[in-house]
Amino acid sequence: MIQKENIIVGISIGDLNGIGGEIVLKTFEDARILDFCTPVIFASAKTMNFFKTHFKSGINFHNINNISQLTTGKVNVFNCWNDPVKIEFGKEDVTIGRYAIKSLEAATKALKDNDVDVLVTAPINKHNIQSEDFKFPGHTDYLAQQLEGESLMFMVTESLRVGLLTDHVPVKDIVEHISEDLIVKKINTVYDSLKRDFKIGKPKIAVLGINPHTGDNGVIGSEDDAVLRPTLKKIKDEGKLVYGPYAADSFFGSDNYKNFDAIIATYHDQGLIPFKTLSFGQGVNFTAGLNKVRTSPDHGTAYEIAGKGKADSSSFKEAVFTALQIYKNRFDYEELTSNPLKKANK
């Protein structure tokens, strides 16, 4: 891994009928960000010029058909298609879903080929992207297949990090997915990410219970006692600072979360409801555990405000800066772990 002064950020444009185009424009209208990175938007010149005109943006795009044509200090647009696209803000459209996947696939290929250093994904519609060729519930599952490592949905801000044991799983199936192997794998992924991606030397992790009140000694379910507690004890006996299970209903309201470097929730809403309540608009969805860095904003396509110029770009901008910081942290970590003398002198 080579440290770069100007990191190349690949951007998949997401659902064209949503707010993706708007928040990408708003993020890079501040030219100061180009001092830190070089963005490459995977879409088309025609599409991005449509957004530019519609939102009255002053951005001047540098259009390229090959990554070798990329220019630093510019907002580059990599042409993934040349045909005109009918954009109807706020409308769910299967055709638009296909363009979202074209963008994602091209950006992911560039990431795998080291043509871009990090990937930031604008929101997609999980329904209209489905096809015979693309059967994934979202970005995380697709990238887990495409990239090396053990993926984990990790919602992060500067002061709050929430990982998930299970992510896009129906509530009725959650317990079936939770096993000792899964718990160990996910906790290790969070632990390693905290050290490598966030520069935390001795991570302290809390794990939330599966059942209300962590089962109340078997009165409200046996899974916490049968699976979760013994597995956490094994992990803690290995020397990791892992605590729990904690009753989820009071954990965040009591501010207990502030005592930990990360919290692992057992299912999607258990973790994301408090995370988004505490940090909405500033949070970032980071796919931890992969050999490449990918982030996204903590919101969806927001069809109800698409095209109206009302979208808040804060979370997307945070996603860009988080990707840059994690990329730099990984470089520092690899330098430190590969150089024992530097580690000893630190």
Rank of each mutant, 00 (worst) to 15 (best):
F251S: 04
R294S: 11
M155K: 00
H54W: 06
I326D: 03
D115F: 08
I174D: 04
F280K: 01
L272G: 10
F331I: 15
K172C: 06
D115C: 05
T277W: 00
N60S: 11
G58N: 15
I264V: 14
L336Y: 13
F89A: 09
R330T: 02
F50T: 15
Y191K: 00
V293E: 10
S44D: 08
A226W: 06
E176F: 15
K202F: 08
L278W: 02
S44G: 09
L278P: 13
E148C: 04
D133V: 00
R196A: 15
K46C: 01
K91N: 08
F89Y: 11
S296R: 03
N339Q: 09
H168V: 15
S179W: 01
V175C: 13
Y246S: 00
T27Y: 03
A311P: 15
A248M: 10
K135V: 03
H168P: 12
I11T: 07
S131D: 07
F252P: 08
V9A: 04
E335Y: 12
A302P: 14
I96Y: 02
V77E: 07
F198Y: 12
I7C: 02
N17P: 02
N79V: 09
F78E: 15
A311Y: 13
I326G: 14
N128C: 12
V190F: 11
N60K: 05
I67D: 02
G97A: 07
F275W: 04
K46F: 06
T71R: 14
K234A: 06
F316Y: 11
I64F: 08
K317V: 12
Y142W: 06
T47R: 04
A247N: 13
V207E: 03
I2Q: 11
D93Y: 06
D224P: 07
T72Y: 11
S44A: 07
D141C: 12
D83S: 13
Y257K: 11
K310G: 11
L232P: 14
Y333V: 00
I263K: 13
T231W: 02
F280R: 01
F331A: 13
V171T: 10
M155V: 04
E180H: 08
T108M: 01
I174L: 05
T277H: 13
E5W: 00
L104P: 07
G239P: 08
F36I: 03
I187G: 09
S313G: 02
